[in-house]
Simulated scan of single mutants.
Amino acid sequence: MSEYYRIALVGNPNTGKSTLFNTLTGLRQHTGNWAGKTVELKEGTFEFKNKSYRMIDLPGSYSLYSNSLDEEVARDYVLFEKPDVTVVVLDATALERNLNLALQVLEISKNVVICLNLIDEAEKRGMKIYEQIFMRKLGVPVVKISARNKTGIPALLDTIDRLIDGVIACNPNTIKYDAETEANINYLETKLIAIFGDRLPTRWLAIRMLDGDQSLIKAIEDNYFGEEVH
Score class of each variant (00 low, 15 high):
residue 115 C to S: 04
residue 175 I to P: 06
residue 165 D to L: 15
residue 6 R to D: 00
residue 41 L to I: 13
residue 165 D to M: 07
residue 166 G to N: 13
residue 144 K to P: 09
residue 22 N to R: 01
residue 197 G to Q: 01
residue 49 K to I: 03
residue 42 K to D: 05
residue 164 I to V: 13
residue 126 G to A: 07
residue 82 K to P: 00
residue 142 V to P: 08
residue 157 L to N: 11
residue 43 E to C: 10
residue 109 S to T: 05
residue 1 M to Y: 03
residue 75 R to Q: 15
residue 180 E to Q: 10
residue 57 D to M: 04
residue 221 E to C: 02
residue 3 E to M: 11
residue 157 L to C: 08
residue 88 V to A: 10
residue 18 S to P: 14
residue 28 R to W: 02
residue 53 Y to E: 03
residue 64 L to T: 14
residue 30 H to I: 00
residue 191 K to E: 14
residue 155 A to W: 12
residue 71 E to T: 09
residue 204 W to P: 02
residue 171 N to C: 01
residue 215 S to A: 15
residue 21 F to L: 09
residue 203 R to Q: 00
residue 157 L to I: 11
residue 88 V to G: 07
residue 107 E to S: 10
residue 147 A to I: 14
residue 84 D to S: 04
residue 84 D to A: 04
residue 64 L to G: 08
residue 22 N to W: 02
residue 117 N to E: 13
residue 213 D to L: 06
residue 84 D to R: 06
residue 221 E to P: 00
residue 218 K to Y: 05
residue 3 E to H: 00
residue 201 P to A: 01
residue 108 I to P: 00
residue 66 S to G: 02
residue 40 E to V: 05
residue 51 K to L: 12
residue 80 F to S: 09
residue 203 R to P: 05
residue 214 Q to Y: 09
residue 70 D to I: 01
residue 137 K to V: 05
residue 103 L to F: 08
residue 34 W to H: 08
residue 1 M to S: 15
residue 37 K to E: 05
residue 207 I to V: 07
residue 43 E to T: 09
residue 29 Q to K: 15
residue 154 P to L: 13
residue 124 K to S: 13
residue 230 H to G: 15
residue 150 K to I: 08
residue 54 R to Q: 01
residue 156 L to F: 12
residue 49 K to A: 09
residue 126 G to E: 09
residue 208 R to I: 13
residue 47 E to C: 02
residue 165 D to T: 10
residue 57 D to N: 02
residue 26 G to P: 14
residue 115 C to A: 11
residue 148 R to I: 07
residue 157 L to F: 03
residue 162 R to M: 07
residue 44 G to V: 00
residue 123 E to S: 04
residue 191 K to G: 03
residue 192 L to Q: 01
residue 24 L to V: 00
residue 116 L to T: 09
residue 11 G to P: 11
